[in-house]
Amino acid sequence: MRVFLASVAGCLLAVASLQAQARALSQNERQVCGWGSQIAAEAQQAKLSGVTLYATRKKLQARKFAKPWMRMTAFGITEQTYNSRSRLKPAAIKQTYYEQCAQHAVAKR
Score class of each variant (00 low, 15 high):
Pro90Ser: 04
Pro90Trp: 02
Arg109Ser: 07
Ala62Asn: 11
Lys89Tyr: 00
Pro68Leu: 05
Arg23Leu: 07
Arg2Tyr: 11
Ser84Met: 04
Lys94Cys: 00
Asn83Phe: 00
Glu79Gln: 15
Ala14Tyr: 11
Gln103Asn: 11
Ser17Val: 00
Arg23Asn: 07
Ala24Pro: 03
Gln103Arg: 15
Val106Met: 03
Ile93Glu: 03
Ala22Pro: 01
Gln19Trp: 10
Pro90Met: 03
Thr56Lys: 15
Cys33Val: 01
Ser49Lys: 11
Glu99Ala: 05
Arg63Lys: 15
Gln31Ser: 14
Ala62Ile: 00
Ile77Pro: 06
Val106Trp: 02
Gly50Val: 02
Phe75Gln: 13
Ala55Arg: 14
Glu42Cys: 06
Leu18Glu: 15
Val106Ile: 13
Leu60Gln: 09
Ala43Val: 04
Gln80Pro: 01
Leu12Ser: 09
Gln100Val: 02
Met70Pro: 04
Gln44Leu: 01
Ala6Trp: 00
Gln27Trp: 00
Ile77His: 06
Trp35Pro: 12
Ala55Thr: 02
Gln61Glu: 13
Val32Met: 06
Ala62Pro: 01
Gln21Ala: 00
Ala41Thr: 06
Pro68Ala: 10
Val15Leu: 10
Phe4Asp: 13
Tyr98Gln: 06
Ala40Glu: 05
Phe75Tyr: 15
Val15Asn: 06
Phe4Ala: 13
Lys89Gly: 00
Val32Gly: 03
Thr81Asn: 09
Ile77Gly: 12
Leu12Cys: 09
Leu13Ile: 05
Ala22Thr: 12
Ala105Asp: 08
Val8Trp: 09
Asn28Pro: 00
Met1Ile: 05
Arg109Asn: 07
Asn28Glu: 13
Asn83Lys: 12
Leu48Gly: 05
Val3Trp: 05
Leu18Ala: 07
Ala107Asn: 08
Ala9Met: 05
Tyr97Phe: 09
Arg109Thr: 04
Val8Asn: 11
Tyr97Thr: 15
Leu60Ala: 08
Gln38Ser: 14
Cys11Met: 12
Leu5Cys: 12
Ala105Phe: 03
Leu60Phe: 08
Ala102Pro: 06
Lys58Tyr: 14
Val51Pro: 01
Val15Trp: 10
Lys47Pro: 07
Ile77Asp: 09
Val32Trp: 01
Gln61Ala: 10
Thr96Ala: 09
Leu53Asn: 10
Lys47Ile: 02
Ala14Asn: 12
Ser37Trp: 00
Gln95Phe: 01
Ala14His: 09
Gln38Leu: 02
Thr81Ala: 04
Ile77Cys: 05
Leu13Glu: 14
Lys59Tyr: 10
Pro90His: 03
Ala43Glu: 08
Thr81Leu: 01
Ser7Trp: 03
Lys67Glu: 15
Gln19Gly: 14
Leu18Thr: 07
Arg63Tyr: 10
